[in-house]
């Protein structure tokens, strides 16, 4: 376990370093801000290694508990930011994505770090796919919200078409992943609780989220919704994600506890 904690701390340090490098390189014309990518890559590799070790130790995809789910979330956020950096040269987006990943990893630190065996209720591939795709989708929706803020403030430094493409990819891929999460979650609920549809508050709000992003997908290509409306929808969507994930877990007794 100590190796995974060390890798967790190392990943955190690399993400902080990435922001520092970006800030330091910004006023210096002879240094490209693209060098901030490399600490992010190093942190990402630390996280991948950490996930691989936990997977080997636990014998299952490590997506149970706060520590592992937050790592998974951060992994997707950083992977998306790196994809944007290499594909669209969106280096200005790195600090925001790193900030998001750092917040997720700090939150992860609050959870138990031991590799726990699966209890009978979650010892099913449906659970693992459900959680993995949920957090991947949450990560992409989060990146979409950050990109929308960048677009609104006009600080991305990327061409408008690239900005729009990045935002759209996050929402589109996030929605597809979330759809898979809903299908596997429903199947799991059918086998465990007796119905693919349950009137439990977490499930209901997940459907609200799914319908919300269904609506966003329907209007995102329409001329009247380009520009600021789709930015607002992306940010509001992530607020909904945060409430569904954190708000419900903190305010209500749910079937999906945070810890």
């Amino acid at each position: 376990m100590s190796s995974t904690i060390a890798l967790h701390n190392l990943a955190l340090a690399f993400y902080v370093l990435s922001i520092v490098v970006w800030v330091v390189a910004r006023p210096i014309k002879s240094i490209s801000q693209s060098i901030a990518v490399w600490p992010a890559v190093a942190g990402f590799l630390c996280q991948v290694l950490q996930v691989a070790i936990r997977w080997k130790q636990g014998g299952h995809l490590p997506v149970t508990g706060l520590f592992e789910t937050q790592h998974f979330l951060a992994l997707w956020v950083v992977a998306t930011a790196l994809y944007f950096a290499f594909r669209y040269w969106a280096y200005n987006f790195l600090p925001a994505a790193m900030g998001f990943a750092i917040a997720a990893l700090l939150f992860a630190s609050k959870g138990p770090k031991t590799v726990a065996p699966l209890t009978p209720a979650i010892d099913t591939p449906y659970f693992l796919i459900h959680v993995a795709t949920s957090f991947a989708a949450y990560g992409l929706f989060g990146v979409a919200a950050l990109m929308a803020i960048y677009r609104t403030l006009r600080i991305s430094g990327s061409p408008l078409a690239a900005e729009r493409r990045m935002l759209d990819e996050c929402i589109y891929f996030g929605y597809i992943l979330f759809t898979w999460a809903m299908i596997t979650g429903s199947l799991w609920a059918y086998l465990t609780w007796g119905s693919y549809w349950t009137w439990r508050i977490k499930g209901l709000w997940s459907w609200i989220l799914w319908f919300y992003y269904s609506g966003v997908l329907h209007v995102r290509s329409r001329p009247g919704w380009q520009g600021w409306p789709v930015n607002v929808l992306a940010v509001a969507g992530f607020v909904l994600v945060l409430f569904t994930y954190l708000g419900l877990g903190l305010l209500f007794k749910t079937s999906h506890p945070l810890l």
């Binding site: 319908f211 919300y212 269904s214 609506g215 329907h218 209007v219 329409r222």
Partner: peptide
Amino acid sequence: SPVTFVVLTILWC
């Protein structure tokens, strides 16, 4: 129209 669906979806949510 997709907008009709979206309006209904918002009300549903």
